[in-house]
């Protein structure tokens, strides 16, 4: 009976996580932290929608949108870097990482401008519940962008030395996954805090 079976098609590679299990556990914890923060924001807003809407309107949505574009683009560049490493072109991938770092730096610059404007307008953690959330959420995310940049920098140093290749993807995939997480949470943060009323 067995012999009569037709030969099986060549097996596809079994499903695997891109990156180390440890970084994924860490990412899950981060997602949980941001998730709790978002939900807390949403329910705090439900108690006082008018106040939230009024102060939300005063935010700089242009800056928020440009920052979203920058993070998405950085993420895309990181994807290209990973693909380049997979094709055995680690050094080529390093250039994509530099581009990603450039976008991230742009994000940081715009964010600092936003904070400067907010502080000069007298906005602080204690000025209102909305501003508490606005500053806390964006600053918590801001710290993650900075950490993400350190990680991308480390990937860049390694990629430049040609360290990554089809048989050594663990490091670059782990770092990339972390960066995408930073992007992912911003994709919710931006509409939630800046736009949806």
């Amino acid at each position: 009976m067995r012999a009569a079976c037709p030969p099986l098609p060549a097996p596809r590679t079994p499903p695997t996580l891109a990156g180390d299990l440890a970084i994924w556990i860490f990412i899950l914890a981060e997602l949980l932290a941001f998730g709790v923060f978002f939900i807390a924001y949403a329910f705090a807003r439900a108690n006082n929608p008018e106040l939230f809407a009024a102060e939300q309107l005063a935010l700089n949505r242009d800056a928020g949108a440009i920052n979203t574009l920058l993070l998405l683009t950085a993420s895309y560049f990181v994807v290209r870097a990973v693909h380049a490493a997979e094709a055995g072109q680690s050094r080529h991938g390093a250039r994509w990482l530099v581009a990603a770092l450039g976008c991230a730096a742009g994000f940081v610059a715009i964010k600092i401008g936003e904070y400067a404007a907010a502080f000069s307008a007298g906005i602080s953690l204690s000025s209102s519940t909305f501003h508490m959330f606005y500053l806390s959420l964006t600053f918590f995310h801001f710290m993650h962008v900075l950490l993400g940049m350190v990680i991308l920098g480390a990937l860049w140093l390694n990629a430049r030395r040609g360290l990554y290749g089809p048989h050594n993807m663990n490091g670059i995939e782990s770092g990339a996954a972390y960066w995408h997480m930073v992007d992912l949470v911003w994709l919710i943060l931006f509409p939630l805090v800046y736009v949806i009323r």
Binding site: P15, T16, L17, Y76, A177, H180, L184
Partner: peptide, 20 residues
């Protein structure tokens, strides 16, 4: 829209489409 964008990042950028 935000959820769809998130799903795209998760499945493609984070390569979870080929994860368990």
């Amino acid at each position: 829209v935000a959820a769809l964008k998130g799903a795209a990042v998760i499945l493609d950028f984070m390569a979870l489409a080929r994860a368990p």
